[in-house]
Simulated scan of single mutants.
Amino acid sequence: MDRDPKTMLVLNPNAGKGKGLKAFAAMRELLGRKIKTMEVRVSDYAGHAFQFGREAAKNGYERVLSVGGDGTPFEIVNGLYAEGRPQQAIDLGMIPAGTGNSFLRDFSAISWRQAVEKILSGRRRKVDLVEITYQRDHKEIRQYYLNILGVGLIADILKLTNEKLKGFGSLGYSLAVLMRLAKGMNNRMRLTIDGEKLEIVDSALVISNSKFTGGGMKIAPMADTQDGRVDLVIFQGVNRRDILNIFSRVFKGTHVSHPKVKTCSAVEVTIDSSPQELLMADGELLGLTPLRLKVLPAELAILA
């Protein structure tokens, strides 16, 4: 009889305002019956899941399951790769229980039940992982992401939401958009996209590995997690009216036809900017430009 892979489950009980804890209570018996080797770790604070990822890489775990939003697997993956590529392959299973849960939408796993079914079926998919380096406190930081990187405007909106508007729930994000737009756009970015140079002003962009962000926003409709490339969506030379018009179309993915939206795909990207721009990856605030990015094709096996 085949043995069960050594499995760690990382639970973020605060994901989705307690949604993670409720979901885990409902699924625990089913998972426990099917996965005899499962050990549960509870992520109590920001960065805790990173430590569990590092533990999994060091101690021979073969499978890590994440119960939370997009930020929980972000921490786990960065823990797995904290000392470089893990010595043995570690499968990642993601069970959505947060507010966004964007990445799994590419695999039609919107509910925790759908995700658990896919995990228990044992189906593995190799997906691309994106390596980035950026500035934080005058130091160069290397990290990895699965879903999306926001440069400038998108990261600013997240920062406003987290610092001032979290108590407003989903309305807080919309309020943050309006507050940020009141400041207008005033920047200059110099991009190198697979060796080709591009300079843009009064702009923002996202660099996506998958199609969705913020739950149902189809920010990069052409993105494919298995094509060895990231998709850039550039909001070029936009004013407040442009941004509002673009955001009104993003849930259907039709914003890419807007005349001030440019799209392309790449394997390697560098960005320098004046002033420095704030960065966000998978819902987590990071640091500042300059940024270097490269795709690691088929780097990570996920259960989906």
Rank of each mutant, 00 (worst) to 15 (best):
R113M: 15
G60A: 08
R136S: 15
F74I: 00
E75P: 04
N187V: 02
M179E: 15
Y144S: 09
D282E: 13
L198G: 03
A220K: 02
S265P: 01
A304E: 01
R113A: 13
I243N: 04
K260R: 04
G216T: 09
F74M: 07
G152N: 11
K58Y: 04
P221S: 04
D156Y: 00
A220W: 08
R33N: 14
G98E: 11
F168E: 06
P275E: 04
T225A: 02
D272N: 13
V267Q: 13
S111D: 13
M185R: 12
P297H: 06
V67C: 14
L279A: 03
E199Q: 06
S102T: 11
I207C: 11
S174I: 15
G79N: 02
K17A: 13
R240H: 07
D194Y: 06
V261S: 07
D282Q: 09
L65C: 05
H258C: 04
Y144T: 09
D194S: 03
G16T: 10
D156C: 02
G287E: 01
G98C: 10
G60I: 08
A23I: 12
R292I: 00
M27C: 14
K17H: 11
I141W: 02
A182H: 11
S108R: 13
L178E: 02
T213F: 14
I193P: 03
A176R: 00
N101L: 11
N78A: 05
I246F: 08
R124I: 10
L149G: 01
P259W: 06
M222V: 13
K34I: 03
R3Q: 15
N239Q: 13
Y173K: 05
E268P: 00
Q143M: 12
R113Q: 15
S121F: 04
R3H: 12
P221T: 02
S265W: 02
P96L: 14
N12K: 10
G32D: 09
